[in-house]
């Protein structure tokens, strides 16, 4: 099978998977509908309560799931590529720690009622970008980028951020503590349509721009120096990719909180399923991550309905178990 045909085949399969996730998530919930119900509801159109549930609650949630799942998984694949390290995920660099610290600070200081509903996402985004900036500045030296020191800097900043957050939690009121924990657990329940639109637009642009560097990522698999010998400006590629991955992660965390494992596991599953070539890995990670998170979210909100489990619980358990099974098979990064 030639490469384009193979890739097309993989893309079609993953699109079908995403479509399946979409339909499942659309149908099931606190109130479940059959496909026939759905057609009926759409005939009746607006004004119906059921129509409102589908279009105003479920659809936006699915779109956010696609955006966040796709973004996290895509930036996981990118970061594993530029650091040549299979254990790196979007949160390794302290991006989530920074966001959590920003959010905690706003909650403890009682600023969220002050600046409206956008306060927490803004605080999260600001926190994550502050970390990204620090990591970047600390590891850019004389025109080159030192990926190992970058990784270590990120891990250290992540530790510092979580310590500071614990400090905040120690002095926080019970009320604030609940809010912090609730935010940290992550959820796709986001009432603000504007934020969902931003996250979705950002995730698609991130995917688009990452493809400018798909071939560079392939060369970087051989190491920075070898990539240079193949005519790749490694330092430039790493910078661009780092910025893309950071923005995607920052926006995801700001809107949906911390949802673990998607960014670590899905790229690995896709390496196995679609291959290590970044020309297909970037898109397959995006689609796989999107479908996986939408399905996980459906489980999270139906399993103990009418209550909701944090979606991170589901992604962690399913992702972790799936990955252990995969590791038992022969698999190299």
């Amino acid at each position: 099978m030639s490469r384009p045909v193979k890739y097309l085949f993989i893309i079609v399969l993953l699109l079908l998977f995403l479509l399946f996730a979409f339909i499942v998530s659309f149908i099931f919930g606190e109130v479940s509908f059959s496909l026939i119900d759905i057609i009926q509801i759409f005939k009746t159109g607006e004004g119906d309560l059921k129509y409102a549930i589908l279009m105003k609650i479920r659809l936006p949630r699915i779109i956010l799931g696609i955006a966040v799942g796709g973004s996290l998984s895509l930036s996981g694949a990118i970061l594993q590529g530029i650091y040549r390290n299979p254990l790196v995920e979007p949160y390794t660099l302290g991006i989530s720690g920074g966001a959590a610290l920003g959010v905690s600070l706003v909650i403890v200081l009682g600023l969220q009622s002050f600046i409206s509903a956008l306060a927490l996402p803004l605080a999260g985004f600001a926190g994550s970008m502050a970390v990204v900036f620090l990591v970047y500045v600390f590891s850019v030296q004389r025109g080159g980028i030192h990926t190992n020191s970058m990784l270590l800097t990120g891990v250290m900043i992540s530790f510092i951020a979580s310590s500071l957050m614990m400090l905040l939690m120690a002095v926080a009121s019970n009320e604030s503590l609940r809010s912090i924990i609730f935010w940290t657990m992550g959820s796709l329940n986001e009432p603000n349509i504007l934020l969902i639109k931003i996250a979705f637009g950002a995730s698609l642009s991130g995917l688009f721009f990452s493809y400018f560097f798909a071939r560079d990522l392939n060369a970087l698999r051989l190491g920075e120096e070898r990539a240079i010998h193949l005519g790749v400006n490694s330092a430039l590629a790493i910078r661009f990719l780092f910025v893309i991955a950071s923005l995607l992660t920052g926006i995801s965390v700001a809107v949906a909180g911390i949802i673990g494992f998607v960014g670590l596991i899905i790229p690995h599953i896709m390496r196995l399923f679609a291959g290590n070539d970044y020309r297909i890995l970037l898109l397959s990670s995006f689609l796989g991550g999107a479908g996986f998170l939408v399905l996980s979210d459906t489980l999270a909100r139906t399993i103990i309905s009418p209550n909701e489990l944090p979606v991170g619980v589901i992604t962690g358990i399913i992702g972790g178990v799936a990955f252990m099974i995969i590791l038992r098979k022969k698999y190299t990064f």
């Binding site: 060369a219 698999r221 010998h229 005519g231 290590n276």
Partner: peptide, 30 residues
């Protein structure tokens, strides 16, 4: 341009699971 004029075979042995043909094709990147 440089990669079209100079090719380098480094000393470190290669460790990644990439198909041999795909690996050789990387030489066409420049």
């Amino acid at each position: 341009e440089r990669a079209k004029n100079i090719a380098v075979v480094s000393q470190t042995l290669y460790v990644d699971s990439i198909r041999v043909e795909d690996f050789v094709l990387m030489g066409r990147m420049p």
